[in-house]
Amino acid sequence: MCLRIFSATFICCFLSCAVWADPASDQTAFKNYFYNKFPEIPVGDFINGVYAIDQKRRQQWLEIEEFPPYGIAIDEGEILFNETVFSDGSSYSDCFVDGKRSKKNYPYFDVNRNTVVTLELAINDCRVSHGEQPLKYKTGDIAKISAYLALHSRGEIIEVEVSGEAAINAYEQGKKYYYSKRGQLNFACVDCHVASSGMRIRAEILSPSLGHVSNFPVYRFKWGSIGTLHRRFSGCNSQVRAKPLAGQSEQYKNLEYFLSYMSNGLKFNGPSTRR
């Protein structure tokens, strides 16, 4: 136990202090930490969060997934994506070269814009560039479209590239956000989702960060609806009594970029259901 705490502290310290490290070695250290902590979890199963850890909850979740509560959102997302005609006569398919199989292309760093582009940002960019109003970022239609696109990228490998000074800077910003304590309760993402992952806060098991991004958007029973990854980030911020940021804020985009890069090699499996 002591050894485990020591090694967790050491690795956290190593990850947070390793300013000289490059993204690739960060990723190796990050993954190895979880592989060593959860040797019984097959690598590919980290995309299932706590359901990779707790068999009872996994069983309940699998039963829910037979008639998933996000099913309606997918159907609505399909209609929104394929049948929306913008005022200039164009449609989403004019913006997404891979059509419904586009989720796998995000997030990426856009050198020209000097920012991370996520799927949800690209959806709204598409709308705005064709004279439409942007959608709200955390829930509603954007999450439905995202769910439909996620479904058609299931099984694709997460392959986020971080190269070039500007991209590395965005990655470093995301990493810094992940390791920084915030809020009245003074928690960093790493506190719960690395060092304490697999342990319980009240009755809830804390999910490992490896694989965190793969299954979004998700239908959460707590929400009673489907929501995006940035909605979930907001929830974490609120829980530690920090001010939630806007969806697609630079901080959240960089955090998504960092977390996605950490999960490279795993498969997309969204949308999904979470408690």
């Binding site: 342990m199 319980r200 806060i201 009240r202 804390l206």
Partner: peptide, 15 residues
């Protein structure tokens, strides 16, 4: 109780 077990309190955490 979120993190500590206390006197058999319900749904205690173990972090």
């Amino acid at each position: 109780l979120a993190c500590h077990a206390i006197d058999n309190g319900p749904f205690s955490g173990n972090t």
